[in-house]
């Protein structure tokens, strides 16, 4: 489904701030894989996501989704393959537009936009049903501006928008990190529900090791722009936080120092 071949990205090349964010990075995802991604600050997790999403062009390597080489495609053209949820709840939705209008924007992802209606009456009914799965009572306030929703509500809505047109690949970039624990758990449950329902191929970055272990069928750990751990199948199912720490030390030759990731 996704193939990243020898992708390299260097920020600020030739300056004192030069940073190799992705270093000859390769990753292949099978159809239906749900991969959780962990790693410390600056390990290259978000850079990997941005390389796929097309925030900028990579310096070397190829990115292929479902047989289409998207390496040189601009961000908005890649969007038809991708569903994205960002860390900041403000990023994923248009605050000055209504809930239904936001969903309608997502519904038209990958389609030619012209002078057809921005949202039809039929869609209103469709979205009223759709938002019920979130269990947030949004079905009664579809015309409310997204700006008045809480962070958790906005993330849940963004998740719906990302999956409204079934994406080839769902990118979740620490999408629960900015939420309080209760809301975060709820958004994660919804994520699990939608991913299972639609059999979505998913990449989920998280800073929380427990979440990384509890979700998905494969776990990768990044360090210095490379994959240093890749655990899948039965091994992933039996994994504990302690195992993960030992494996990390063995793979990197360092002790894991990020308390947040361990305790979170």
């Amino acid at each position: 489904m996704l193939e990243m071949k020898h992708v390299t990205k260097v920020f600020n090349p030739g300056t004192v701030n030069e940073k190799v964010a992705l270093n000859d990075f390769s990753l292949t995802l099978e159809d239906g894989d749900f991969v959780t991604v962990i790693g410390g600050n600056g390990a290259g997790k978000s850079t990997m996501m941005n390389a796929i999403a097309g925030a900028w062009n990579v310096d070397a390597g190829e990115i292929i989704i479902d047989g289409t080489n998207i390496t040189k495609l601009p961000e908005h053209k890649r969007a038809r393959f991708l569903g994205r949820v960002f860390q900041d709840p403000m990023t994923g939705t248009a605050a000055t537009m209504g809930i239904a209008e936001n969903l309608a924007l997502a519904k038209r992802r990958g389609k030619v936009r012209f002078l057809g209606p921005g949202i039809t009456h039929k869609e209103w009914e469709e979205y009223r049903e759709l938002v019920k799965i979130l269990g947030l009572g949004l079905e009664d306030r579809l015309s409310a501006k997204v700006g008045v929703l809480s962070g958790g509500q906005r993330q849940a809505l963004t998740l719906l928008m990302a999956t409204l047109q079934k994406p080839k690949l769902l990118l979740l970039d620490e999408h629960t990190a900015a939420l309080d624990p209760k809301t975060a758990a709820k958004v994660l449950d919804t994520t699990e529900y939608i991913v299972n329902k639609d059999h979505l191929t998913t990449l989920m970055i998280t800073h929380n090791m427990k979440d990384a272990i509890a979700h998905g069928n494969r776990l990768i750990m990044l360090m210095d722009g490379k994959i240093i751990l890749d655990i899948r199948g039965e091994e992933k199912k039996k994994l504990t936080v302690e195992d993960l720490l030992h494996k990390f030390e063995a793979a990197s030759g360092e002790e894991f120092t990020n308390d947040k990731a361990i305790l979170g």
Binding site: A53, P74, E75, H76, K77, A79, R80, L82, R84, F86, T91, G92, T93, A94, L105, A106, R108, R109, G110, K111, R113, M161, A162
Partner: peptide, 9 residues
């Protein structure tokens, strides 16, 4: 950001 993610140029 959101617009580009939803395929808007």
């Amino acid at each position: 950001n959101m617009s580009r993610a939803q395929g808007i140029n």
